[in-house]
């Protein structure tokens, strides 16, 4: 009983720190209604934020991670992003704080850099995803609030880019899975590669729905396409693996990719269509890496060629500076519709 009273008093005291008077009572009631763990985190966070508000070099506090949009557990940390003033003496840094018995991972980021992360290229999808689901706790600068709202909007081009990245990420695992099934008949190892591919496929699913992919993207995708992910993920984990089930999982993945290939690899197809002639794999790789920060596009090109969506060609190359002999380098070109004669 005394522990309950003590707890109620503690919560009331925390509420008083956050605000005062009638508002404090409302907050106190809100705390009481929360799950205990969640409560503990929220109380600690609120207290910390109150302290931070007094720091004039901190412009805004943004809550990321589980506490912002998901369920926390006892061993969760609080992930906090603090936007700082722009000053030579203030640099980006990470700082582990301690708030009422809880670990707070704090990332300090100057405002100019914060803006660049939000508005810039979709290179660091992890950070962007983090911010897309984050919650602005407070800000002294209204433009930061606007930027946070922007983070949640992902345009069509960025979506294509994300799809391309996810698809090129998934392809090698899919190939490996096929290889191990065909060459070794190793069901377990094949299943493992399918599970590796599942993350990329889940990203494809989520992004295709114009949603922001979580770190834990597979559960997200399971809700959106339960039938597919049950077959390639849940069943492979839980059910007994037979050649039939593994083969069927691979087949359904192949169909999944093939049905979406024109969308997933739209940027590659468009690029080849625009250049109008064959390009070597090195040139294609280089183009996507330099302009879109997407690597290993050649794998995707080979896939598209297998699907007869682009053509395979070759261009001459010398292996070294001293080489006099010429060999042929893999190249690709846009496949127009065949001319009917």
């Amino acid at each position: 009983m005394s522990s309950i009273v003590f707890r109620l008093v503690t919560i009331r005291r925390h509420a008083g720190r956050v605000t005062s008077g009638r508002a404090a009572d409302i907050v106190w009631v809100a705390y009481l209604l929360m799950d205990a763990v969640q409560q503990r985190f929220t109380v600690a966070l609120d207290a910390l934020v109150e302290q931070i508000k007094k720091d004039r070099s901190i412009l805004a506090a943004i809550l990321c991670g589980s506490l912002s949009h998901d369920v926390v557990w006892e061993k969760s940390d609080i992930d906090l992003m603090l936007v700082t003033i722009d000053d030579k003496k203030v640099e980006s840094s990470d700082l582990p704080l301690y708030a009422d018995g809880l670990n707070v991972h704090t990332n300090l980021i100057p405002r100019a850099e914060f803006r660049k992360v939000i508005e810039g290229s979709f290179d660091n999808s992890f950070v962007r995803a983090l911010l897309a689901k984050a919650r602005l706790l407070y800000t002294q600068d209204e433009t930061i609030a606007e930027l946070c709202r922007q983070a949640q909007k992902i345009g069509a081009h960025d979506t294509k880019l994300q799809l391309l990245r996810a698809a090129t990420h998934a392809l090698p695992s899919i190939y490996k899975a096929h290889k191990w099934l065909i060459t070794r008949g190793d069901l377990d190892y094949t299943a493992l590669w399918i599970l590796y591919a599942a993350t990329g496929l889940a990203e494809i699913e989520v992004v295709s729905h114009r949603l922001v992919a979580d770190r834990e993207v597979i559960p997200q995708a399971l809700k959106l396409n339960p039938e597919f992910f049950k077959q390639i993920y849940t069943d492979l984990l839980n059910a007994k693996k037979t050649r039939k089930t593994v083969q069927e999982a691979l087949d359904v993945i192949d169909r999944y990719m093939a049905d979406r290939a024109a969308v997933l690899f739209a940027l590659i197809i468009e690029h080849l269509r625009d250049v109008g002639e064959a390009r070597s794999s090195r040139e294609i790789d280089d183009y996507f890496r330099r302009h879109m920060n997407v690597s290993h596009v050649t794998t995707a090109c080979e896939y598209l060629a297998d699907q007869q969506m682009i053509g395979k060609a070759s261009l001459p190359v010398r292996l070294t500076k001293k080489s006099t002999a010429e060999v042929q380098e893999l190249a690709f070109f846009y496949l127009s519709d065949p001319i009917r004669r």
């Binding site: 810039g120 290229s121 345009g155 081009h157």
Partner: peptide
Amino acid sequence: DVLFAEVRKKGCRRMFIDGRAVDLSDR
């Protein structure tokens, strides 16, 4: 497209082209 990619890399998502507002995250 190369220019747009470069502008985006420099942290600019929005542009005005001949007075027309465009979002570089869209095509």
